[in-house]
Amino acid sequence: MTDSHHISRRDFIKLATIVGGGVIGTIIGIPGLVYLLDPALKSEQGETWISLGPLENFEIGKPTLVTFVRSRVNGWEKTSSSYGVFVLRKSETDVVVFSNLCTHLHCRVNWVEEKRAFVCPCHDAAFDIDGNVLGGPPPRPLDRYEGEHAKIEDGVIKILFKEG
């Protein structure tokens, strides 16, 4: 070895091992991190328009339950859930769509014609035909699909349903 070498063979090997190991570690390490965090980095499925049927299917002044099933894929597992909404046709063109989930603990409410009320089987909560609370524990009226979350297109009622 001559004096012109500023780094000894030994130190060079050490340095090369550290640098090479670091580069390889980073090349493998970053994909590894992405792999682990992948589900958190993915955006969940968005919204879909659900068609509830043509306007003339619904009797004026009587809330009608419409159910639909949505399936969701989580990883390799597909789950189907059924959902329900009450469609109330107030007049020829005026329609209100309520969620059938009680605002207390998300039990499903039923329309009881004799009482003219939505009644929740869990804690006897009651809502009037406009979804306002008549009695029981619910903190707020029934949720509605309104504004940009509902539309009538070619005579068919549609709601914008959020997945998840």
Partner: peptide
């Protein structure tokens, strides 16, 4: 789930193919 979960690793998870390949 074994087969499906591996399909998911190979196609659904980013760099899953790399980890399983190694």
């Amino acid at each position: 789930h074994a087969y499906d979960s591996i399909q998911y690793i190979m196609t659904g998870v980013r760099f899953g193919w790399l980890i399983r390949g190694i």
